[in-house]
Design a protein around this nucleic acid. Structure first.
Lengths: 258, 258
DNA sequence: CGTTCCCTTGACACCGATCAACTCTGGTGG
DNA sequence: CCACCAGAGTTGATCGGTGTCAAGGGAACG
């Protein structure tokens, strides 16, 4: 079931037969019809490639399209006055970058590609019309938005009240759960193309301290992190250590209602 | 324009002639018709009072109504394993407590009244029907949801990358801007019914350190905090000190489009 | 007039930041 | 094939901000 895809695998354009992670995610939450799924695949037809370290969308601009991650990793971030950076979300294949900008106008933060990325560009009007006459798909899109919000809350808790090693452990637990949902976890390991500096910017620490924190997690026998891939040796132990409760991701919540 | 209302003022039931803060908020963002506004006022007709320190909604329950703050303050919070608490949002008059629960199911966090509060109870079905045939109101509700999300991101930045006194200052700037939007700021001061412990739980510090932090802000001549009310002596100075950019609140964004 | 929160203050411990140097790795070009 | 280089990871020494613990003060309230 879980399909491992390294960044170097050839990936057909979304909609041309390749696995569509957005469909996988929405389909896990709601009971989508084939017509619903095809409609989702269709809007992902126009894909652009973005080089690593390049902004997909910059702060202050008003994008004329909605962007959807098709392949690769990206991060929402905000620069602070003193020059430091805070990442507020990791964007994985199947995630929306800026569903909100249709309503809110200018971006109040930037989105940067962390790896070479493929991003689908969807015209606003197409995105607005998508859920019309498709109530279950509408619910699924709402679900995705609200889970994103729940993830933001969990980050606040993580950064505000947990110690350094717990923070990093909690982040790994979240990423494992989210990647699993879109089929990007293979057994107990998955690609984790994040430098220690990126992790630091996500959990509110410095790169040096993230390094020491990772050593601790390794010494505890919880993880192996090497070559851009993370192996979780003891998922229960890691979750326990981090105080991770997957409930906030609301997996399968919608499905259970039907 | 700005109306100061202390918690002890008599407040008529929403819809019975009193100022409706939700209408004020949504009306500031979108161009609502009188019919739109009346519809919003109508759904706030059933109000219940909650005592301070009592949960309005507890973690794990599935509320059978949508809750809207009518009067008083509340906080979203999550308890952490070690017994500490993290507040992830302050809920002010006009804010939705749990618009998401219709879709997501169980609450993944609790909401507690920080003062004696009045909360409107709206049946799910009534809430779902509200925006039907009222496109501008639908946009306004989306706007409110997305601004809440933007506030969550700004909290992550605040807690993750700012020093203690900047964090508290930034929180004060946010509350000032949000309260002003619903007409609860009078000149340069407003009610701030928060103990130092509550502030600490919101910005990821300890009560003792919040105390020292407040002293610093006072010494800098930026604020006066006394008797449950905050006076901002130098709003530009405070915003500068905190690195506060009100842009993320997207005030009047929708209105400007029309 | 006592009780109960809440605020305040001081001494001290410790976690994580900072600064600086060194290592390791992978990629590039001679 | 090797030399070089840039980026990332690692380590050590030290600093400083925030947490912790404990005691005292003050205001609201019954």
């Amino acid at each position: 079931m879980a399909i491992h895809r390294s960044p170097s695998d050839p990936c057909p354009l979304a909609g041309a037969g390749g696995r569509n992670h957005l469909v996988a995610k929405l389909g896990a939450a709601a009971d989508l019809s084939d017509e619903d799924k095809n409609a989702v695949v269709d809007i992902c037809s126009q894909v652009r490639e973005i080089a690593a370290r390049h902004d997909i969308i910059s702060e202050g601009v008003r994008p004329d399209h909605v962007h959807i991650m098709v392949e690769g990793w990206a991060a929402r971030y905000k620069m602070v006055d003193d020059g430091s950076r805070q990442i507020t979300a990791f964007l994985l294949p199947g995630d929306f970058c800026d569903l909100h900008v249709t309503i809110l106008g200018d971006m109040d933060h930037g989105i940067v590609a962390l790896t070479p990325a493929k991003v689908a560009f969807v015209p606003h009007q197409v995105m607005q019309d998508l859920p019309l006459g498709r109530p279950e798909l509408l619910r699924a899109l709402w679900w995705a938005t609200l889970v994103d919000e729940a993830v933001l809350r969990s980050w606040i808790v993580n950064i505000g009240r947990r110690k350094s090693s717990e923070r990093v452990a909690h982040l790994f637990c979240e990423l494992q759960a989210r990647l699993k949902l879109v089929g990007l976890v293979s057994g107990d390991h998955f690609d984790l193309p994040l430098t220690q500096e990126i992790i630091a910017d996500a959990v509110g620490l410095t790169p040096v301290h993230v390094n020491r924190t990772l050593q601790k997690l390794r010494e505890l026998g919880l993880i192996v992190l090497r070559g851009g891939a993370l192996t979780i040796l003891d998922i229960d132990g890691l979750r326990d250590f981090a105080g991770f409760d997957p409930n906030y991701l609301h997996r399968g919540r919608l499905a259970r209602k039907h």
